[in-house]
Structures are given as structure tokens and as C-alpha cells.
Design a protein around this nucleic acid. Structure first.
Lengths: 250, 250
DNA sequence: CACTACAGTGAACGCCGTTCACGGTCAAAC
DNA sequence: GTTTGACCGTGAACGGCGTTCACTGTAGTG
């Protein structure tokens, strides 16, 4: 495994220590300086991308880094701070640049889809984001990217702020529903969906008339369509916004 | 500790058992039939209402019921099923009746506010609901209550279904952000909000021009206003919905 | 009265986040 | 060149979690 030691030069190297000229073969543990905060966060992101946020435990993370669990606390105060760092890392993956020439609705649409794509690549992250108001640089950059088109669209300040909250919250909320696999009754494949539709059709139509009539269209597993049409509805609502009293033109 | 036994009547009572004439003082543990699934779920709801969903552990729940943790598994398969039962119990608290004479937007508004109120009385429940598609009777009744006004409003089937998803998801997503107290930097009281506004004003205005200009209006802690205006935006968007191809008039 | 079904017990298993005394290693100070 | 001190990872431990299981005593049935 390890190449044979040739420490006859000074001969004084104690067992277990490396002679000065010995350079560990590129990434072997020198026992010293194994971890970095960046390495920790990067590996945490990898775990989440592979197995979801529930699989991120301090022990699993430490094991993947070739270290015991307690060692992580030299680089991260606790798991909550690790979550904060991870969130900033995820938001950094969202490209917040926009084409300033495009219509504002199109800019919003592009940003929103990029945000959703990144969130769904890291299952469970959206749920964490919902419980925080991250103020890291990447979060702020994203907010700026959303606010600029809304401002440019002529929305008064307060309504622009509320519109940003609405759109951002909508995207997060949508991403929360993603792959969760908690319920056996989830609408995942066509077979279960057909079963679900049959179940709905079989409901007593005197108590659930509309549900029986429209049931087929309520639980649609086409997430892309649901996301796009929901966003369209919100944007249409924003386009018909009238300035309200108390906004005060700046 | 235990009051002295007076089991001289039949004398055959083994240690730890009660004489036949002993009637436990109205609700004391008879060792037999202490629990019911309903009692378990009701106590779980109480714990959640008092301390949030994170405080709901099998051991804490069992202790409050005067029982060891393992006993709960006689009435509930596992914690996930307990969550399902709790969710149904919560949705049962939502009054799904509507005034059919009121305009459809008003019916939706009333239902939505009732749903939000119930969800915010049980902190953390919304997060659970987002990960499930509950098909219990109360969930179905709520869906019916939402779908009826949308159908009555003239929305074609598919768009009515999508509109329901949008409104329901919006309310859940909004409720998820409720009291969470995870971050010290949360916008809870006026002092921290002022601090936050100062922080935003101090940002470099070349990199975050719109954010600096509108920052005051982005992080608003008036949850009621944010919820109402967001819902208004969605409803306004729904009112301008045009039937799309492929809907098929029924 | 005997029998059986079953609800609750207590202990255990394996996981989790977190803490802490310890020891080894490096870099700076003398 | 030696000493010193800062620092990082170790290993063990603590308390809490969800869950399982052999056991026990009671309650209802015949």
C-alpha cells in the first residue's frame, strides 16, 4: 500500500512520524491538516446531492472525510451552522445573471427555473431554506437579480418587495414537495396514478361532487407543467397590479 | 411511596395487583386499557400545539400518557403513521363549509385563511403536510371545498385542478415559514428588523442597487399582509385565465 | 374455573448530535 | 537547536432518539 520508507538519511525518524523530506502521496492523511471548512461543506453537499439531506449526519460526513465525528467541530460550530454553510453553497450554484434586454417576466421565469433546478438537485435543501432568511452574499445576489426586473417593470417599492417574497416563496415551496418518498401512497408512477384516479372516481359523488368530476386533473404528476402554469398565474397577477395608497413614489 | 395495601379481604391478591373492590379513582391506570389510538393522537396534537412538532418524540408522548415508549407501538405502527394520523386530526379542525352565495374569490379567501390559521396553531405541521398527499376524509373534504368555487368560477377542469394545487401549496408554503426560531438573524421584533434594514442600506449599492433601494420593503414581518397580498395576486392571475387547448369542455 | 389474547413493561440495539481529556505535530520563539 | 505553545484529530463518553422483543399480568371468553 504505502511505498517503503527510505528513512536511512537521518535515521532519527521515530516510528509513526515522517522524515522531513517525505511528502505524503498526494492526499494521504498526514494526521495534520486533513480537514478544511471548505472540504467539509463540499462533502456535505455531495452527500445531499446523492442521498438527500436526511442522509447528512455528522458521523456519515466524518466517515466520508476519513475522520471521526468529533473532528468536524473544529471547523463547524454545530450542525445548524453546517446547514447555513451548505445553503450558501447551494445558492452559489444558481446563476443569477439576467438578460437585461428581455421582458421582465421572461427574466423572472429564467431565474425561477434556475433556482428550482438547483434546489431539486439537492433534495431536502428547500425545506431548510424555508426555515431561514439567509443573508449570505449569494442569497443577496439572487434577491437583487429578482428585484431588478420587478423594479424595472414599474412595480412600486413595497409591491416589488412583496412580489419577490411571493415568487421566491413559491419556488421554494414547490421544491419542498419534491422527491420525498415518505408515503407509499405517493403519486410517482403511472400505475399508482391510475389507481389514485380510480379511487377518486369511486368516491361518493354526493359528498365530493366537484372532486369526482375534476379529480383527474388535481393530482397531476407533471411537475414541470404545474410549476410553469403556477408561475404564469402569479406573473399574470403581478401584471395587473395597481399601485396602492401608501406606496409613495420615490 | 405507594399507599399501604389493604388486601386482607381475599388475601390472595398477588403483589402489584389491585383487590377486586378497588376502583381506580376515575382515570387512574388500571394497567389494562390505558391507551387508545385516539388518546395517542390527541396527546400528540397537544404536544405539537404547545411546543411544536420537533417536541413530538415517542418517549415524550409516552411519558405524557403515563406509559413507556414501546407501548405506543401497540396502537401506531411507527412514527410516520403517527404523523399521518396527526395530520388528519389537524385538517379536521379546518371548517370546510363555504357560503355558496358569496363570490368565488371570497370563498377561496375564507377557506385559505382558515387553513392558515389552523396550520399556524400547530407549528411544524405544514412542513409535514408538504411531504405528503394526504387522502384522508378531511383532506378530501378540504379539496372539495376549494374545487367547488373554482369550478363554479368557470375554470376548465385542468386549470381548476392546477389552481387548487397552487392555492393549497401557497398556503402550506407560507405556513412553513412560521415561527421557527432556528436563526438568530430572524426578523422577529422591531429592533432586529431595524438592524436588518440598516444592514441592507449599508450594502455596496453598485453590486446591489435595487436591493439597497427597495430593501426596506423586502423583509416585512407583517405576515398577515404578506399572506393576503400574495393570495390576491394569485387570485387576480386566476381571474385572467384563458381556456387553453386540450381542456375539452365537459 | 381454565384458557387465551393482548396491552403495557423494561431492557436492549443502533443511530444521532455534542463534549472533552488526551496526544501528536507543526511553526514560531528563544 | 531546543523549547514552547497553538492546534487538530482521536476515542470514549453522555443523553436522547425510534424501534424491537421476550415477558407478565390482566380481562374477557368459554
Amino acid at each position: 500500500m504505502a511505498q517503503p520508507r527510505q528513512d536511512g538519511v537521518d535515521g532519527a525518524a521515530a516510528a509513526g512520524s515522517h522524515p522531513l523530506w517525505f511528502i505524503p502521496p498526494a492526499g494521504q492523511e498526514t494526521q495534520r491538516r486533513v480537514l478544511t471548512r471548505e472540504r467539509v461543506v463540499a462533502e456535505a453537499l455531495a452527500i445531499i446531492a446523492e442521498n438527500g439531506v436526511d442522509a447528512l449526519s455528522m458521523r456519515a460526513l466524518a466517515t466520508r472525510l476519513g475522520v471521526v465525528a468529533g473532528a468536524l467541530y473544529r471547523h463547524v460550530r454545530n450542525k445548524e451552522q453546517l446547514h447555513d454553510l451548505v445553503l450558501d453553497g447551494v445558492l452559489a450554484e444558481v446563476d443569477a445573471r439576467t438578460e437585461k434586454l428581455a421582458p421582465w417576466t421572461e427574466q423572472i421565469r429564467v431565474l425561477t427555473h434556475r433556482l428550482r433546478a438547483v434546489l431539486e438537485e439537492h433534495p431536502g435543501i428547500a425545506g431548510l431554506l424555508k426555515t431561514r432568511d439567509p443573508l449570505g452574499p449569494h442569497s443577496l445576489a439572487l434577491a437583487e437579480a429578482f428585484l431588478a426586473p420587478l423594479h424595472e417593470a414599474g412595480l412600486p417599492p413595497r409591491q416589488a418587495g412583496l412580489a419577490y417574497s411571493l415568487i421566491y416563496g413559491y419556488t421554494l415551496g414547490f421544491a419542498v414537495e419534491g422527491r420525498s418518498s415518505v408515503n407509499e401512497q405517493r403519486v410517482c408512477d403511472a400505475a399508482t396514478r391510475a389507481q389514485l384516479h380510480a379511487f377518486i372516481r369511486a368516491l361518493p359523488s354526493d359528498r365530493f361532487p366537484t372532486l369526482v368530476a375534476l379529480g383527474e386533473h388535481v393530482w397531476v404528476d407533471n411537475r414541470d407543467e404545474r410549476f410553469a402554469t403556477g408561475l404564469d398565474t402569479i406573473l399574470r397577477g403581478l401584471e395587473t397590479t395597481r399601485p396602492t395608497a401608501g406606496d409613495g413614489a420615490t
